[in-house]
Every structure is written in structure tokens, then in C-alpha cells.
Design a protein around this nucleic acid. Structure first.
Lengths: 145, 145
DNA sequence: GTGCAAAGTTGGATTTCACAACCTACTGAG
DNA sequence: CTCAGTAGGTTGTGAAATCCAACTTTGCAC
């Protein structure tokens, strides 16, 4: 898709969710918000840009636009499976922000079903050991165009 | 920091790494590239924007700019601890892109030190169980300004 | 018939971005 | 000595995206 640069699923993913307000809109939706006005207020995005981003996300299959009222027509945005699969990314992003950007205590805390406050850890699906930079290495890299 | 919208470490993180080319530059650096020209070519970013992004990342403490040659002055960019801590986010992003965006096989494959091809899984640091949307819930949410 | 709400769209000013060209300071080839 | 090449940017210009406020549409409550 990308005309230039390395062929890479990170670039492809960012083409879908990498615009400025996309991930914040998805954060609100995964927090349970469903409606345009509330997503706009809670993210701070301007309404025209938010409308464009939501349209992109629907076209990409990350969100579904559902009519919940016929007269007058009213719509809500619900995450698809692809949208729900972004939860780990948002939690890792929040954790990184808590550690390295936000001053003071974390503004938002999540709880896991086990009862503990949720701190995400990314592990190798095969062996279960944590993934850190020195435990991983690229074995095949996408070509640069 | 953000004038409006929810107080949230996701927004704070995106203020640092959410610009269009920042994560792709970090991808190259975590793949081992260190030099401006190679990062520019491999990402496809224009040189002026890349220079601005790298400056932001250095100011934010994600990268360190190191002089490796005095005459003429030459610099390389190396990740700090905060930069290396982005590895799980990039791997999760790549995995999501592989699954939901990229057509065909994954362009880039990583290997974990255990020997297997690396597929990241995000788990609860406390109990080790996978983190999915229905196993998590926000318990305290940052206020909206 | 006035006010309110939801879900956007429209117009205009501002800001950012992309692209090519240029600059500085060296190195190596001929 | 001159020319090409490399590294790491900066500058200028025009195109594109963004921000903001106001407006629209459809219905409901008073």
C-alpha cells in the first residue's frame, strides 16, 4: 500500500489507526462510549475530523456503524473483532505513557478479571517469556521500495 | 498537557510517538539502523519532517543523539530505555497489521530467544492470563477537560 | 413555536506536510 | 587539483490537512 519505504505490517497498521485522533476515538469506544457527541467531547477532536476518522475506521473494518434509532436516524459505533484486538496495543501504550510521559500517578487504571490492577506484559506466545529488545531479533525483514 | 479531552496516558504517549513518521523511525532504530540517511530511505519520510521528528524524540528522552565522528561531525540515534520499552508496542502493532491489514504472509518475521517465531501475547502481569477486551474493565478513568 | 439533542456538514483561516534543491564538511578516485 | 560521493541536515514553495465556529436536519418536550 505504502508507495515507499519498507514493506511492513507496522506501516500498514499505522495507515489504518495511525492518524492523530484515530486511537483516541478507539480508546473511547473500548471504554464503552458509542456515540459521536461523547467521543468528540472526550477526545477533544474537532467534529469534522472525527467524522472522517470514524468513516475510515468503518471502511477498514475496525468499527461498525449501527443505526439504533430510525426517526430521527441515529447511529452508534461498535468495535469489530479487529477493533477489540487493539485492546493490547492501547493498554501497552497507556502503560508506556504512565511510565515515561505522564507526571504523577496514572490517570486511568484498569482491572483484570483476576482482581489485580492491570499491568500489561507482552510475552512470547510460544514460551511465555517476556519480550524485550535483547531477546528478539528480526529473521526476515520486509524489503524497502 | 493536552488542553482538552480526557486526561490519559494514551494521549500523553501519542503526543510523543503519535506523529505520522515517529513510530516508523523507531521501528528502523529498533531494527538496528542508526543513521539519518538510512532511516530516511527505509521509512520513506521526507528529510525535513524526519529531522523534526527525531528532534522531538530526542527531547522526549526516547532517543539519544550521539556523535560518532568529529570531523566532519556525524551523529547516530540510539534508543534510550524508554525507546527500547516501545518494542512490545511495535510488535503488537505488527502482529495486528499482519492479522487484519496486510494481505498475504507477514513481510517481517521476528524470532524470540526461545527459538520460535515471535508472536506477541499481552498478558496480565499479575496472573499471566491473556488480556482481552472482556477480561478487562476500567476502574478509574481520567477526567475530561 | 421555542428550546434542546444527536449526528453530522460547510466555510474560512491556520498549520502542517511533501518535495526538491541547497549547504557544509569531509573522503577517495583520477 | 578537480570531481563525485557521503552524511546530516536546512530552506523555500505549493499542496494538503486541520481547527474552529456556525449551520443543518429530524424529531421530542414544553
Amino acid at each position: 500500500m505504502a508507495v515507499r519505504g519498507r514493506e511492513c505490517s507496522i506501516a500498514n497498521a499505522l495507515a489504518v489507526i495511525g492518524e492523530r485522533w484515530s486511537l483516541l476515538a478507539l480508546r473511547e469506544i473500548l471504554l464503552g462510549e458509542r456515540r459521536f457527541d461523547r467521543i468528540a467531547r472526550n477526545t477533544g477532536a474537532s467534529r469534522d475530523i472525527l467524522a472522517a476518522r470514524l468513516r475510515t475506521l468503518v471502511e477498514a473494518g475496525v468499527l461498525e456503524k449501527r443505526q439504533y434509532e430510525r426517526h430521527p436516524p441515529r447511529y452508534e459505533y461498535v468495535p469489530t473483532e479487529a477493533g477489540r484486538a487493539l485492546t493490547p496495543i492501547l493498554l501497552n501504550l497507556m502503560d508506556w505513557g504512565d511510565r515515561y510521559v505522564t507526571d504523577g500517578p496514572p490517570p486511568t487504571v484498569w482491572r483484570h478479571s483476576c482482581g489485580a490492577d492491570l499491568h500489561p506484559r507482552t510475552v512470547c506466545a510460544h514460551c511465555g517469556e517476556p519480550v524485550t529488545e535483547d531477546e528478539t531479533s528480526p529473521v526476515r525483514i520486509g524489503p524497502v521500495h
